[in-house]
Write a protein that binds this DNA or RNA. Sequence first.
DNA 1: CGACGCGTTGACCTCGATCAATTAGCGTGG
DNA 2: CCACGCTAATTGATCGAGGTCAACGCGTCG
Lengths: 253, 253
Amino acid sequence: MITRGFHCVRVRTFVDRIGEFLSLSDCEREALTNLQGRTRSLRRGAVLVREKDRTSDFFVVSSGMMMSYVLLDDGSRQILRFLFPGDVTGASALAYANSPESVAALCESVVCLFDRTQVADVLTRHPRLALALTALDQAERAAMTDRLAGLGRTSAQARIAAVLLDLRDRLRRTGEDVASGFTLPLTQEEIGDASGLTAVHVNRMLRQLEDMGLIVRQGSRVILADETRLRRAAKYVDRLAGVDLSWMVLSGE
Amino acid sequence: MITRGFHCVRVRTFVDRIGEFLSLSDCEREALTNLQGRTRSLRRGAVLVREKDRTSDFFVVSSGMMMSYVLLDDGSRQILRFLFPGDVTGASALAYANSPESVAALCESVVCLFDRTQVADVLTRHPRLALALTALDQAERAAMTDRLAGLGRTSAQARIAAVLLDLRDRLRRTGEDVASGFTLPLTQEEIGDASGLTAVHVNRMLRQLEDMGLIVRQGSRVILADETRLRRAAKYVDRLAGVDLSWMVLSGE
DNA sequence: CGACGCGTTGACCTCGATCAATTAGCGTGG
DNA sequence: CCACGCTAATTGATCGAGGTCAACGCGTCG
């Protein structure tokens, strides 16, 4: 087997993430920092939340890489989303008593858990933070609509190209050096479960992209050799890039 | 052509919708009511928002039926969501200057538009409303993950069954009498664009469900004859049913 | 009346699934 | 160090769900 030597070195917190597109007041920063909840370490494969579990937690991935997914009764799995350091999830706890999805670690990871009542409390006192969190959520929502369109309307090759570009962009955003390629932190089966394909067909599509010269593979390392054509093949749009909260003229204090 | 005689008679507002799962204080109710924005009527097929349009609006469907969708460059369309009276959309305006998706009317419809700064203002002053809106959004998010799993991992037959059940439940929630079946407010092409299939195959799957005795069709009217088996065929879960905000102990005023 | 949009059906083909066998990398215990 | 065993990657052969193309019916509207 090819070594899955993936480690996100950087740790990213709630504050880092929200601060990315909203400059925080000292007061807001303090409120978020005081929120620091329980920390939990997870081994590869460990399940943090199981579908239908009773949960009241909100959480942020500190380091590592995780995924959220649902299982169908025939045993097949649909991966909904990959989670990188700084990513927030579990907002569904705000609406549901039981989790609509499972969350598990894809490699050694650390997460930080927050109780929903505390989160609600902070968001109530700091409306700008609430809006920032909403904005984060909207960005994820947009990414999800792209995946939806991908599954419904694009070819296997396009979906694989999209997964590669998406992973690269998200890894880069965590501070990973990705210029000369990156180590695929996923098995081909996992890529398949994210893109609605079988592991076998994922393999064939990777080979095809390689034969076409769009990517280069060295073991589990991937280089996006011809990004322009890869992007075209994927019909890919980077959603997180376009977030714009400049209209938000609420008092910064 | 078979008459598409669909009309949502009931009108539902923001207040109605949020009031469904959160009992509002007079103050909150008033704030929402004062928010009533510009009203716009749309004919079937009219496009309210086009992808990439600059938008700063938030809106609520008052009556009729609409859809949000994205178009791929090869001309194919993925319908992301159907919108019924009381449904809120455009929350992406909170994060983006340009709309990530298009929105159009599926029949004569009326929508109510609100400027995002006004909405943000009200949500800031009434945190419980902000949380309620977040909860609504989470419910839609959960529905979207189901669609994602459906597209990625289920058969054509299951997807069609899921669309039928989803439409029925949402129509019922708007107050439509749906017990003895309902008029399909969509063309088979639209059903296909929502489920990632071609119109031709949608037709075949409808026939198949009919032959299996799960549904009965009379023109464009559909009766869900064997709901238990239909539900099983669809792997269907009604997400909006389980919303629970009882934990929210913020002062109700 | 003719054009058009939608539904329906049949014939055929393709993409991706399935089944099966082989190979590669790595960890383990001896 | 080496033999064994595990997991993942790879490749070939075959199958079938769903797409594509084409024809036709039917109701509506100009």
